[in-house]
Amino acid sequence: MGDAQRGAGSRPPAPGRDPGLQPERTRLAWRRTTLSCTVVALLAGRRLLRSTAPFAVDVALAALVALLWLTFVAVSHRRVRAMATGRPPDLPAWIALLLAGCTVTLAVFGAAIVVS
């Protein structure tokens, strides 16, 4: 945050703003991550379209995928909003665990569908 880190001749950043744009970079990293999750959820949904299981089972599985995706996006959005503050608080551990849990569940879901 010191003056030494600011480029010579550049305007001083607004108070409380990191000249390295760390919150912005982190916010974009969250956006990329939700995008990755969206691709995986779409692939999972596409797999369900070819499923030979009973209709009710497919609907339940599709609902599960939708729920996982919604959880992922909602939790990420919460963190993205936190990035809008000048000094974001630390990432809460439950968010990290929940996102990893969503990813693992998607993997288990895929394995279950493929094996069955």
Partner: peptide, 22 residues
């Protein structure tokens, strides 16, 4: 925040592998 971005990068790697499986 840098540590958080590293976490997200690894999470994306995991998601990419899951997507690759699909």
């Amino acid at each position: 925040l840098a540590n958080e971005r590293t976490f997200l990068a690894w999470l994306r790697t995991g998601l990419a592998l899951v997507g690759g499986g699909f």
